[in-house]
Amino acid sequence: MSEKLLEVKNLKTSFRIKDDYYAAVDDVSLSVNKNEVLAIVGESGCGKSALAFSIMGLHNRAKIEGNIMFKNQDIANISPAKLNKLRGNNMGMIFQDPLTALNPLMEIGDQIGEALLLHNKDLSKEKRKDKVIQLLTKVGIPRPEHVYEQFPHELSGGMRQRVVIATAIANEPELLIADEPTTALDVTIQSQILDLIKELKDDMDAGIIMITHDLGVVAEMADRVAVMYAGQIVEVSDVYTLFESPLHPYTRSLFNSVPNTAEAQSKLHVIQGIVPSLQKLPREGCRFSARIPWVEESAHEEHPELHEVSPGHFVRCTCYKHFNFPDSSKEEQQHGIS
């Protein structure tokens, strides 16, 4: 049994819109072990990024409820000073868009060096520079001495993402959160970056949370997968089980809407309706029920729970037992939007 690094318990992250709070992450529990990649999959608005930001404590004005246990310490609502000791040191984050994630007016060396400086005040300037050069080499940047003095706009997208990664791993964090790290990149660069993350994981024995919407990336990277819809986890499992026998209607719908898996030129599956906005999220019953209206109401639970269907494989609500894709009646697919 590997060591538990992070355990999130009943996390609820709510944002204030006008006078009310709306939960973007609603009662999410999950855990990450050392040397494990947990992928969190879902479409925009499902709360996956809000979840990542909550773990890193990066929400400025959100209400956080529940526990985030990092190495047996609850970091959900700790003081900024304590949090800052962990961030960048024990936990690192990789962002989606490497151009905007870097300060345009700061040299690359200073940006990576800042992460070192903040957590190791005794390191001399020269040693810090040496370390930054080492990091740049480690993430596969050619001519690190030269890049050290360059500015973000002088680098290509792939190189910038390597810099972002170098910053995140500067202090060899135990937990690395990657928020759509390859979405903004070309496919050949994507495979290089994914390889790099894999390598670093083995190197540092780190736990990784990989936020993505790309099932291909999940298949390549993840050990375990959590599928999120409307602020909740609807299915969790190890990656092999999930890809072989996905159960939740949302998971299955996602798989069927990706062109990769479908037979060429055949119709893709379209999920009816649209992802509801934060204010309009259904808070009662099965949150996905509105998008599979042909499934009888009695199939859903009143208060959908996660059920363990096989060891380590959890599915929310009972509707998966009664779910079938409607026979490809054209009407259904063509006018997905009502």
């Binding site: 890193m56 990066l58 900024p80 000073a81 800052n84 000791k85 962990l86 961030r87 960048g88 040191n89 690192g92 984050m93 962002f95 868009d97 905007t100 994630a101 870097l102 300060n103 345009p104 007016l105 700061m106 800042e114 992460a115 903040l118 957590h119 972002v164 910053t167 995140a168």
Partner: peptide, 25 residues
Amino acid sequence: KDFIITARAKGASESRVYNRHILRN
């Protein structure tokens, strides 16, 4: 800006985020 979030994720304190990143820029 996103790079402000990066700075916070590095563990920079609020005052450092202001002085080193926001003010300068």
